[in-house]
């Protein structure tokens, strides 16, 4: 009998352990990439822009023909691959963070207003979300980049102005739940202004939900930047965006697959880490809302 009682508890502990390991792994990956991005100039063994045409496409050190001077080899222009990868981490992280800040500000403002005021305001907010969702992000981003000329700032601006939908959805639904709770009514009765209620009562209480969305959106923004750069209309050359590195290596991938594997794996691991972190965060606050 004691076995029957213990079994589910053991399973739960087991599940918590796995979730815990997801959190640790995710935090380790994201922390590592953030550190690399921060310390980039001191970590990179070479100048990531220095071209050396006599040393083109040298394979990584562990492969035949590799040298210790270029641990991850060199690209088609003889630039050190490890150094470019390190600088690429900076691009991904900066774009991820700045896009989330921009889209988070827009989405949260819209969502909280809709959820708190309801009625006509909410109708307008729901309509804005619906309209935004029907616009294809990649296509619009490519069009704008094609017209205005692609640049680092433009990628952040376009993605930031487009990816606010999930923030708005979550901010709206969580605000609606909080709006009718006693402490909001109490603050209102105590004479707090609307702005004070929104900033001091509502916002702190939906922050954890927004954090989960932030991880999802950061992962999405980094993936989209890579895709845009891959298509040649994201971060412009010679900046070493991981997507651009894959695009530049594409011509050589059938003979030396490592040129696309290295930046691709870096991208994959970073996104996986961010998603693991987001999943663990969601489990911790115990909600399905941001799924």
């Amino acid at each position: 009998m004691s076995g029957a009682v213990l079994a589910p508890a053991a399973a739960r502990r087991h599940g918590r352990l796995l979730r815990h390991s997801g959190l640790v792994l995710g935090a380790l990956i994201v922390g590592f990439v953030a550190l690399v991005a921060l310390l980039g100039p001191w970590l990179a063994p070479h100048d990531p822009f220095a071209i050396d045409l006599s040393r083109r496409l040298i394979p990584p050190a562990w492969m035949e023909g590799g040298t210790a001077a270029n641990p991850l080899g060199t690209d088609q222009l003889g630039r050190d691959y490890l150094s470019r990868l390190i600088y690429g981490a900076r691009i991904s992280m900066v774009i991820g963070v700045l896009t989330v800040v921009t889209s988070g500000l827009i989405g949260t403002t819209i969502g909280v207003l809709g959820g708190y005021f309801g009625g006509r305001v909410d109708d307008a907010v729901v309509f804005a979300i619906t309209a935004r969702l029907s616009i294809p992000v990649v296509l619009v981003a490519l069009t704008v980049a094609g017209l205005m000329g692609s640049s680092f700032t433009l990628v952040i601006l376009v993605l930031g102005l487009l990816l606010w939908d999930r923030f708005a959805v979550v901010a709206r639904s969580t605000t609606m739940q909080i709006r009718n709770l006693d402490y909001v009514a109490a603050a209102w009765c105590a004479g707090c202004s609307r702005t004070a209620i929104l900033l001091r009562e509502v916002l702190p209480n939906i922050a954890s939900h927004l954090a989960v969305v932030a991880t999802l959106e950061m992962a999405l923004a980094i993936l989209l930047e890579a895709a845009l750069s891959f298509l040649g209309l994201g971060v412009p050359a010679p900046l070493p965006s991981w997507g651009l590195m894959i695009a530049e290596g594409k011509e050589y991938m059938f003979f030396s697959p490592w040129v696309i594997m290295i930046p691709g794996i870096a991208l994959f691991v970073l996104i996986l880490g961010i998603n693991l972190l987001g999943d663990a965060l969601r489990d911790m606050i115990g909600t399905d809302i941001a799924r």
């Binding site: 992962a219 993936l223 890579a226 895709a227 891959f230 298509l231 997507g243 894959i246 594409k250 991938m253 696309i260 691709g264 991208l267 994959f268 691991v269 996104i271 996986l272 998603n275 693991l276 999943d279």
Partner: peptide
């Protein structure tokens, strides 16, 4: 999780 983290264009190249 793996499906979510896979950049689509990169997966395409690997399949190629």
């Amino acid at each position: 999780l793996i499906g979510q983290a896979m950049p689509s264009f990169w997966l395409g190249l690997i399949l190629m």
